[in-house]
Design a protein around this nucleic acid. Sequence first.
DNA 1: CACTGATGCGCG
DNA 2: AAAGCGCGCATCAGTG
Length: 553
Amino acid sequence: MFFLLRRLPDGDVELTRYERGASGRLEAAGVDVIPAADLPGRVAALEREASPRWVWDDTPRWYPRLLDAGVTVARCVDLRLVHAILRRSTAAPGFPVGGAAPGPWDVPQAVPGESDGLFEVVPDSLPDPAAEFLAQRDAVEASPTRGRLELLVAAESTGALIAAEMRHRGIPWSPRVHDELLTAALGPRPTPGERPARMRDALDEVRQALEAPDLNPDSPAELIRALNRAGVLVQSTRQWELQRHEHPAIEPLLRYKKMQRLLVANGWAWLDAWVHGGRFRPDYVPGGVVTGRWATSGGGALQLPRAVRGAVVADPGWKLVVADASQLEPRILTGLSGDRSMARAGSGDLYEGIVASGAVATRAEAKVAMLGAMYGATQGESGRLVPRLARRFPDAMALVESAARTGEAGGVVDTLLGRSSPRPSDDPAASGGAGAGALPPEMGVRPADRDARSWGRFTRNFVVQGTAAEWALCWMGALRRRLHERWGAGVPAPHFVFFLHDEVVVHAPAAAADEVAALVAESAVEAGRLLFGDAPVTFPVTVAVVDDYSQAK
DNA sequence: CACTGATGCGCG
DNA sequence: AAAGCGCGCATCAGTG
């Protein structure tokens, strides 16, 4: 049963129940207006009694306050996220009605309610959620691939719940361990404006070796000039280019750059800004990437370097259950293409299986070739190996080739569940002619062709990356349901604390950790079945029960 | 001074 | 060894 929530101008909340009428269409079947303060209690009561699906404009506008009041919900429809999917989807051709121009429903997510002293700053709600909801339902029910589209909008919405719940709980983070890691890597925390001791040492060596006592190592232009003066003929200061040169300045310079990166991205300032009360609370942005992957804003949560993962420490008496899906994208490609040979290769370690097939000689080659196939590599070792893969796995290769050709011709490609790629004209970078801007111009290739090929690589990857994102949403959704069935939503229950494309971290009471690990694996099987039915493709996960994140893998 | 684009590097 | 997808963020360098 659907319950739609809408905020009224006076601050009260309107709650509308929807049921199927005689025609089979959803109809409003009861309206209630309640004071905002009563909402958490009402939601909790209905959760117990009515198995509701909450319909609201935008999860960050509603759910954080329910969570603050100790209320969790099992299911929702996030109208804004679903709108974004349907607007582009070839599986929902009639949406929005009349092909309306982008409007308020097409804006990015609301900022989560920021507390401003006594008052919470809540952005306006989006207009007429009831009409939007019914239009969306019509579009989904009319879809020629309704089942898949239903799964996608449900999974996307559940993702929004998980994102809000993870932000609410936060990642358990030890400032003490973080400080120890930084001190070991960089030296003790310096006074503001100073460089840590080990960075100063490395910089002294660089300046000496380059005979540049005043060198600012953080200015690429200045660094290139100094290196050139010393006979190191580089055109950039990228690691891999520097590594190719033999000079006493190179080793300390690379060491310095490594430390500088850690300091500015995840140093003490980051710790002060982002970790409070032993928790790191990034702002997750479900659907923030065109392919359907999540993005984050603030704190760089999806780029946590391995060097600081030791600071993610389970609470006393708790464990972290860290799980990642092995070789997810190649397996997604296997399922999408129905490639029997690749399915056989994936019965164990997929890359070893590719070696066993005779396509390539080593596991490393198998990996490079596979990535090259999915990304559209044409040059270098990767580009060389792709044809060898194509001979052994023609069906898989045909699928990505077809997606690439569609994109080159300006067409739209779709994920398995029905997320469609943008058109090249929608892409701000493409209209500016940037395209493959950073690459050197390919001799004799017209810019238009270059842009077309670049877009083909995007659509080639879109189907795989996007379907992998759908698998991951289904995996998380299945696991969340299992956790709630087994433990409810009470405070000492296992809960998600982190998600990273193909990896989840669950914070669990130590006594429950092994059981959680089993549910993680079960959920992966369920996700595979939801997307690919009985097709011969498997999704093994590696699970580790650890005290801190660095102990996994 | 504020803004924008390029650079470089962290993650999958 | 280094070219091939998707991101976010800090910093520098150039422009308005």
